[in-house]
Design a protein around this nucleic acid. Structure first.
Lengths: 247, 247
DNA sequence: CGATCCTTTGAGCGAACTCAACTCGGGTGG
DNA sequence: CCACCCGAGTTGAGTTCGCTCAAAGGATCG
């Protein structure tokens, strides 16, 4: 029962608006011309400095955006689950200031800027939803600043797990409190600004405290309240339809 | 020689696009109905949880966005100089997930969402520039993640100074290598995720190394190359017209 | 001219880092 | 089929960057 690439996108767009797409709008999205590509783990899709002429829709797997500093440190900036268009910003910002890569074997669908611009023109409400999507992106970045700026290791990792879980659940890719999290501890470190060793010790603690099970790319949240509390997690910033205060 | 509030906005918009605004576009911006307000230092403009019906244009002074965690820690998310519209995102995201406040005596101009939406409708290119502005915002957030996630205190503070300097210079508010930076060390700490004490010691070091002079709300960069290097500063992410690789 | 806020400095502490070694599982090739 | 390798996870030991607590100087202001 394979899901079509653009179904994922429709589902994602509907997860971030209060009113569902009209039939016409959904059709316009589903009619986008796409070119599907399979990726192995750790493949770059676009790199810092590139000027892409297409955007990348995640169909399956997990992508991340990252920057590498002069001294070689890597900072992961965001993770992207099916339905996301991580480089939608390239529609209006020509030069990439960061890179986009797969963390895991993934499927993506490439959509040309021209097609997306035509869609925005023809369906202004879709344009607004796209804009809104990039704004939610920004909200997530803000929360990541808070995460690395103020939380200590334990809460930082807990928060990352809460966020990915919520994002996956919003597009129907969580199975109860279980979901795929195909990240190495080193990648978690790059995302949270912690060393691999310290990530390891901290996860050990999270396990010992009965909050999560995390192994072989799969995560189960054993105590959601406890994890939320440890993370000081408030999902408002994700601006999901069903979550919190959004009308 | 007072500058009109909306002149600031026109100037800002032109600083982030390759092609200047047409006469008609500029006029449409200048015709926006605004309500000007003076603020003292440390006044909230909108708070987390609010649903604003207007946006805030910085005319003079300095604003910041911030979040306060359950445990009372404050994380500053961005600083905003004249010409910025820090809460432009509220056009498409109804609930504020953070607060906006003045760091210093400031002047703002409030513009209703309705007026901005009408403008976007009537002048699609302005809408695109607004979108672009929020995307640059997001790019700055990304760089802040890198800042607090990977740089140590010395580079972190250096980077903050480089960024504010570039932003002010882009709108003509730097005087050579000098500019107003009306921030307390505690605010710098909240922005960089450092304690006030450590900010103090680090600034002392930056001074001792001959990189900056920083006192009484005024900053002079004495060695721009040195500061850039200490900060590992690459201005690409600001996506300014005149800077770096943007065409 | 006390009150208050900001800055500065000292001293001790602790969270997270680095370096290093060992384990475990999955591949690959001799 | 086993030997080897490599990447990921785990654990130990010592170090360090930045924190907290504490207190003392300015500066500004009613």
């Amino acid at each position: 029962m394979a899901v079509s690439p653009l179904d994922r996108l429709v589902r994602k767009l509907e997860s971030i608006t209060s009113t569902p797409l009209s039939e016409q709008e959904a059709k316009a999205v589903l009619d986008l011309p796409v070119s599907v590509r399979k990726l192995e783990a750790d493949q770059d899709i676009v790199r810092e400095g590139d000027r892409p002429s297409q955007c990348c829709l995640v169909v399956e797997g997990l992508l991340c955006r990252y920057k590498v500093l002069a001294d070689g440190t890597r900072q992961i900036l965001s993770f992207h689950v099916p339905g996301d268009i991580p480089d939608l910003q390239s529609l209006h910002i020509d030069v990439m200031d960061h890179s986009l890569a797969s963390n895991f074997a993934s499927t993506i669908a490439l959509i040309s800027h021209d097609a997306l611009k035509d869609l925005c023109h023809a369906q202004p409400r879709i344009a607004d939803v796209f804009w809104r999507d990039t704004l939610i992106d920004a909200a997530i970045f803000r929360e990541w600043i808070v995460n690395v700026g103020t939380r200590e290791a334990y809460g930082r990792i807990a928060h990352l797990i809460c966020e990915v879980f919520m994002k996956l659940r919003a597009v129907g890719l969580a199975n109860g409190n279980s979901f795929n999290l195909p990240l190495t501890q080193s990648e978690i470190g790059d995302a949270t600004g912690l060393s691999t060793v310290h990530v390891n010790r901290t996860i050990k603690q999270l396990r010992a405290d009965g909050l999560i099970t995390l192994e072989k790319g799969h995560c189960t949240i054993n105590n959601l309240n406890g994890l939320n509390e440890a993370a000081m997690f408030d999902p408002t910033y994700l601006h999901l339809k069903g979550t919190g205060k959004a009308a």
